[in-house]
Computed example of a mutant assay.
Amino acid sequence: MITFGTYDAARHPRTAVLVAGLRAHGVKVTELNRPLGFSTAERVRMLRQPWRLPVLAARLLRCWAGLTADALRLRRAEGVPRAVLVGYLGHFDVLLARLLHPRSVVVLDHLVFAGDTAADRGATGLRVRLLTGLDRLATACADVVVTDTEEHRRMLPDPRKGVVVLVGASDEWRPPGVETHSPRVEPVENPARLAPLSVVFFGLYTPLQGTPVIAEAVRDAVAAGAPLRVTLVGTGQDLARTREILAGTPGVTWHDWVEPGELPALVAGHDVCLGIFSDTPKGLRVVPNKVYQGLAAGCVVVSSDTAPQRRALGESLELVPPADAAALAARLTDLCDPAVLRAARERAVRGRDRIRPQVVTEPLAAALRRRDVL
Rank of each mutant, 00 (worst) to 15 (best):
3 T>Q: 10
5 G>D: 06
8 D>A: 12
11 R>N: 02
12 H>W: 14
20 A>Y: 04
21 G>M: 10
22 L>M: 15
25 H>D: 00
25 H>F: 06
26 G>T: 12
32 L>K: 05
38 F>S: 12
39 S>A: 12
44 V>A: 08
51 W>T: 13
57 A>C: 05
58 A>Q: 09
58 A>T: 11
59 R>G: 05
75 R>F: 10
80 V>Q: 14
83 A>S: 14
87 G>K: 03
87 G>V: 00
88 Y>V: 02
93 D>G: 08
94 V>H: 06
94 V>S: 05
100 L>A: 09
102 P>V: 13
103 R>H: 12
107 V>M: 02
112 V>P: 05
113 F>E: 07
115 G>H: 08
121 R>F: 01
128 V>E: 06
136 R>S: 10
137 L>R: 04
137 L>S: 10
144 V>L: 06
145 V>G: 01
147 T>W: 07
154 R>V: 03
156 L>M: 14
160 R>N: 09
163 V>S: 00
167 V>F: 01
174 R>W: 05
176 P>C: 12
177 G>P: 11
178 V>C: 08
186 E>W: 13
190 N>H: 15
192 A>D: 03
197 L>Y: 03
200 V>R: 00
204 L>A: 15
206 T>Q: 12
211 T>V: 13
211 T>Y: 06
211 T>F: 12
212 P>T: 05
212 P>V: 05
212 P>E: 04
215 A>C: 09
217 A>Y: 06
223 A>L: 08
224 A>K: 13
225 G>I: 01
233 V>K: 09
238 D>K: 07
239 L>T: 00
245 I>F: 11
245 I>Y: 07
245 I>R: 03
251 G>C: 08
253 T>C: 03
261 G>Q: 13
263 L>M: 04
265 A>S: 14
267 V>S: 01
269 G>D: 08
270 H>F: 04
271 D>H: 15
272 V>F: 01
276 I>G: 08
277 F>I: 12
285 R>C: 02
285 R>Y: 02
295 L>Y: 02
299 C>G: 05
300 V>M: 13
301 V>D: 11
307 A>I: 11
307 A>L: 14
310 R>W: 04
310 R>E: 05
316 S>I: 06
319 L>I: 13
322 P>I: 03
326 A>K: 13
337 D>L: 14
344 A>R: 07
346 E>I: 03
350 R>S: 06
351 G>V: 11
353 D>R: 13
356 R>T: 11
359 V>R: 00
370 R>Q: 15
372 D>G: 07
374 L>F: 15
